[in-house]
Design a protein around this nucleic acid. Structure first.
Lengths: 268, 268
DNA sequence: TTAAATCGTGCACAAACGTGCAATCACCCA
DNA sequence: TGGGTGATTGCACGTTTGTGCACGATTTAA
């Protein structure tokens, strides 16, 4: 007998109550379908979509065509992640790199997106780059023309960069114009979040050592959920998103004073 | 024995959910067949092909005739090929790596010879490696199975590693079993010499932080003398030389209490 | 070489989507 | 009592996205 307990008494629910129930279903089954929810709660799909939109804005679900899924926290090996070198990520990186000005000092965190940014930085702009990621340092040394400062410490293999207290100490002793904290979840209401405790502490130190912060977010990072807060949204001056990023999500950031930059569209 | 959960309930999946499941299958089995997927998800092969196309665009799979495979992780496009060690250097590196014992902590300087050594280190020996060179850190992270500690500081582009006072400070705060100072000139009468003032200071700090020192010298480094002294010969316990190294030169080092190790002969 | 399987592309259609608008309802304050 | 206010909802409209099919090109195996 397969009678699902979540089907009972779902109609006549108050809006807030309904969202709560949707969340329960989502967590129980890993996915929800908009049409099914509309049927169960006896409301139109429009209302369900509104609910899902709201939940997604709080990072509680990830909207997909047809319904919603649990937010993806993909812990793929570092070597593979680096190979996810799509045209989209390159377009994102190019837009981010265009925000950099001649002679500036940049603080760049580890991460595959940031590595892509490093590969797009203008070579002739007399840039100084401070990074905790050997891979990024390597990219810049190979390209030549950059002043590279390495942040030392024990390297977290899943992150690909140094993040411990030793690394934090060193970051505290430098000063940068711009800061690119990597692979965060970002949310218009709650700010910047990281997946790991130490990692988040390091990112926070980076941001405090910089005049301005630029968050570069692939679509899956927008409205994704994470455990540890890195910073308030007020500490973020710029947000670079993919061309495909949701319009209302972009508007939410703009409304809170964040300059949103949209990457060019790609062929794919 | 629990059957793989990815087989159940694959039909009626939301589009994005389906791609996620395909990826799971791919990672579990190493390959997926388009026709089988179409059957499992109850969609046309066209849709499956579109999914695979999209995954491939993100670098998450490699499309082949009939389905897809895991992406080939070939991280040696051009830049490393240029640095590709000659057979001689590799033989030298292999001999040097054979001196390392399980569980040891190594202090490895920047330099192409040392990078070759890093590539030859045994993966399953629970080694801790401290290095000032992003390239070496990178090699070890990619090979997996190493504990990597990064020495930070401003990177000298001609050396490819950090050497300033900041780097020296950090080296003073660690302790290693073995030390591989890179690219020195070594002479039986005068000891170890470096080409650059700061570089030499750093090497000296490395040696002082280690119990034993292993100097790995290509033929052109043997018997050469440079401007800045790094250490007395008494601080050097091991010397690794090429197969072609001069016999009397080897004898001179042996006579002064240095254990000389000769690399295997190579084809070229 | 030939035949079968697979692939890419263009196309049409349906489902899902975002947005603006009007209707409804609870609630508050004059 | 009555009008204003804000939240919630369903609907209409045009747009985007996913899907299957047809057709010709390409690849594979015999």
């Amino acid at each position: 007998m397969v009678k699902s307990p979540s089907v009972v008494m779902d109609s006549n629910a108050l809006p807030e109550e309904r969202q709560q129930r949707i969340l329960e279903r989502l967590r129980a089954e890993g996915r929800v379908v908009a049409a099914e929810l509309a049927l169960a709660f006896e409301v139109s799909e429009d209302s369900i979509r509104r609910d899902l939109r709201e939940l997604a804005a709080h990072g509680l679900c990830k909207r997909v065509y047809g319904g919603a899924l649990l937010p993806t926290v993909t812990l793929t090996p570092l070597k593979q992640r680096r190979n996810e070198h799509s045209a989209r990520k390159q377009a994102l990186a190019r837009k981010a790199a265009s925000l950099v000005q001649v002679g500036q000092t940049l603080l760049i965190d580890a991460g595959s997106t940031n590595a892509a940014i490093a590969a797009e930085l203008p070579r002739d702009a007399r840039l100084t780059v401070i990074t905790n990621a050997p891979h990024i340092a390597q990219v810049l040394l190979d390209r030549e023309g950059f002043d590279v400062l390495l942040i030392g410490g024990r390297i977290d293999t899943t992150i690909g960069g140094a993040t411990g207290s030793q690394a934090v100490d060193q970051v505290r002793r430098v000063r940068a114009d711009l800061c690119f904290p990597g692979a965060c979840a970002i949310d218009a209401a709650h700010g910047l979040w990281g997946f790991d405790s130490e990692e988040s502490l390091f990112k926070r130190a980076m941001i405090e050592a910089s005049d301005e912060t630029i968050v570069v977010a692939t679509d899956d990072k927008l409205g994704a959920v994470a455990a540890h807060q890195v910073a308030e949204l007020a500490r973020v001056q710029h947000l670079v998103v993919e061309h495909s990023a949701d319009k209302s999500t972009r508007a939410a950031f703009t409304a809170r004073g964040v300059a949103v930059h949209r990457a060019e569209a790609t062929a794919d």
